[in-house]
């Protein structure tokens, strides 16, 4: 079984190299997934081993950037898990309504589909104009895509369905303009969103938020890094601020479990109580 052991050593060294050379820290990401992505990239090159990739990563920035894209999870959709957005509208929005000004952080926004979904809900609920949304991701290429707000036309049918299931109040067609094979998101949805570079593994506290969304990001983290991220969220929100996680994520067993209470368990919506 020396092949597996060798590969595990190589993965370790590759992640250490990336951290030292470029500052991106993937050392505490779940290994199985990251190893799959490394091997997938390896199979697309002419290189034979991960060790050979290591040299490439050190000396070829372009190659590193490709690998960085491989490491970014950019699978997302508008109103993913419609029931979550429906519950957000029903349970969280009425509380947010009571604040004079709102700050929302969407951590790990990838190509932005969920941020725009959130913006639509805020608009329909009349909260958009008093809200500042911060959408962050560690990958600038992806952030750039998010800023553009272009979605493939073949997704529209699914998104429309999601929007309706999520309790949308208008016609989804009001929120995009179709052109050729893409749809451009309603530009007025952008004005309250600041897209910026932030890495949950290495960067710090972000500001006093009323609501933080970070869905399906922490499933890629090992326990220590999960704790770091949750601590960051806790310190970045006002007392009684809301935290929304992915449907298969939880605060159970984290250091901060008792600092939050569930608002709607099934939707993974929590509130900071300490």
């Amino acid at each position: 079984m020396s092949k597996i052991e060798n590969e595990n050593i190589e993965v370790e060294l590759l992640l250490e190299t990336i951290f030292q050379k470029y500052g991106y820290d993937f050392r505490y990401y779940s290994r199985a997934s990251i190893k799959r992505r490394i091997k997938h990239r390896l199979a697309l090159t002419k290189l034979n081993t991960i060790s050979e990739m290591l040299g490439q990563v050190l000396y070829d920035v372009k190659f590193f950037e490709t690998l960085l894209l491989d490491f970014s999870v950019n699978v997302t959709e508008m109103f993913r898990d419609p029931f979550f957005f429906k519950i957000l509208r029903k349970e969280v929005i009425p509380v947010l309504r009571t604040y004079p000004f709102l700050k929302i952080w969407h951590a790990g926004c990838a190509t932005g589909e969920e941020v725009y979904s959130l913006a639509i809900i805020l608009k329909e609920e009349g909260l958009y104009d008093k809200t500042q949304i911060y959408a962050t991701d560690f990958n600038e290429v992806i952030l750039h895509k998010a800023k553009q707000g272009i979605i493939p036309l073949d997704q529209i049918k699914q998104y429309t369905l999601n929007y309706q299931k999520a309790g949308g109040k208008e016609s989804f067609a009001n929120y995009y303009t179709a052109k050729y094979d893409s749809a451009l998101i309603d530009q007025s949805l952008k004005k309250g969103i600041v897209f910026s570079d932030h890495n949950l593994a290495t960067d710090g506290v972000f500001g006093e938020m009323n609501l933080i969304l970070c869905r399906n990001v922490m499933i890629y983290f090992q326990k220590e890094l999960q704790n770091r991220a949750i601590g960051l969220f806790k310190d970045s929100m006002c007392n009684l601020g809301f935290l929304c996680l992915g449907t298969k994520e939880s605060l159970m067993f984290s250091e901060y479990e008792n600092d939050f209470e569930p608002v709607v368990k099934k939707a993974k919506i929590f509130r900071r109580i300490k």
Binding site: N8, S30, R31, A32, S33, V73, V75, I219, Y220
Partner: peptide, 16 residues
């Protein structure tokens, strides 16, 4: 979700 098994014999999930 994809279901993966880690070296420490725990599950992890991904939406890749």
């Amino acid at each position: 979700y994809h279901l993966l098994i880690e070296n420490d014999k725990t599950f992890s999930l991904s939406v890749n």
